[in-house]
């Protein structure tokens, strides 16, 4: 294999995409481990790409697209780490504007 696919800069981008803060110490362990995993799975490159039909177990079905009752707010909200007045509470995500 030789060539590394996961340089430290790419690792940073990945952690950002995955919404994970990885400490320097964690990175020292995770980076070579991920590199080893990716090197192993690179063996897939040898497989012939034959007719790419739909993949998976081949068993799937969809129900009617009709609304069905869900769980009650009273049941769901207590599980939230941040809820208030019958709503999930999230920090402001639009910068600027009115408070």
């Amino acid at each position: 294999m030789g060539e590394k696919v996961l340089c430290p800069e790419r690792f940073e981008t990945l952690s950002k995409l995955a919404k994970l803060t990885i400490s320097k110490k964690e990175r020292e362990r995770l980076l070579p481990q991920l590199e080893a995993i990716l090197e192993y799975v690179s063996s897939l490159k040898a497989i012939e790409a034959e007719a790419a039909e739909e993949s998976g177990a081949g068993i799937s079905a969809l129900r009617e697209d009709a609304a069905q009752p869900g769980l009650d707010k009273d049941v769901v909200l207590p599980a939230s780490p941040h809820s208030a007045s019958g709503f999930f509470r999230v920090p402001k995500f639009v910068k600027g504007g009115h408070q």
Partner: peptide, 17 residues
């Protein structure tokens, strides 16, 4: 990387099936 890894893995899955 999707073609090189994920799509190849789906081909492998089909071949094994």
């Amino acid at each position: 990387y999707r073609d090189a890894f994920y799509n190849k893995a789906l081909f492998a899955r089909q071949a094994i099936t």
